Amino acid sequence: MRRSDQVRLFQTLPHACGYYADRTAQNLVLDPAAPNLDQLYGPALERGFRRAGGHLYFPHCPQCHACTPCRIDVANFQPDRAQRRCLKRNADLVVSESIPGYNRERHALYERYLQSRHAGGGMDDAEASDFRRFLTAPWSPTLFMELHQGERLLAVAVTDVCLNGISAVYTFFDPNESARGLGTYAILQQVELARRRGMPWLYLGFWIDGHPKMDYKRRFKPLQIRTADGWQPMPQA
């Protein structure tokens, strides 16, 4: 590797785990000041990293290895019965690929979602600067996949389109429309986006076996997980 290709890797201090209240977490983070993060993003995804705002990170917790990178095999994915019902239930929605960034309508939806899903967690009073800082980065190849019912914005799926795959970064939606399964519908639409663009993978971030908020990802088959030996098919239960 040429010296100009090298990038520093930092380890964060221990902080509260976002998934288990009785655990602490640490991350490895690629140098956020590196001038070539846009070029590093694709290879970092391949190695299991994730984007949050302007940071590319990987969980590195000494006492816990629950977070497992996962990705959908796009070419071989077929929706199951529940996912087909979700597609039918949301057939009235218009899906559009939009320029990322802040506007009042998106921010209002984001606030309602956080207040419903993360009340009292420190994220539920997000200002405009928080919205921009968490969801976008100047170097990131991001689009906002918006789901509308008529004039109403029901959901936004923050989606990064890299050369080697698509990353489902974050989805927020109207909490009053939870019966629609908008989170699942957004992933199904991101799978179709990957197919249209000829991308082999849809990266879903981290899967945590048995966790009530993370185990849903195993339903998107075939799913691969990243192990010490590289990417492997998820074992069937």
Rank of each mutant, 00 (worst) to 15 (best):
D5I: 03
L13M: 15
D22L: 13
L28C: 08
A34F: 15
N36L: 12
G42V: 07
E46A: 15
R47L: 14
F49C: 02
G54R: 13
F58Q: 12
H60I: 00
H60L: 14
C61K: 11
Q63I: 05
T68H: 09
D73W: 15
A75C: 11
A75Q: 03
D80L: 09
C86T: 09
K88H: 12
A91H: 09
D92R: 11
V94D: 07
S98P: 08
G101R: 01
A108R: 06
G121A: 14
M123T: 02
A128S: 13
T136I: 08
P138W: 15
W139E: 12
S140G: 06
T142P: 12
F144D: 10
M145K: 06
L147K: 07
L154P: 04
A155F: 05
V156C: 00
V158E: 06
V158Q: 04
D160M: 01
D160V: 00
V169R: 01
T171W: 09
S178D: 11
R180H: 02
G183H: 01
Y185M: 15
A186V: 10
I187P: 04
L188T: 11
Q190I: 08
P200N: 10
Y216K: 13
R219F: 13
P222K: 02
I225R: 03
R226G: 06
Q232L: 09
P233K: 08
A237M: 09
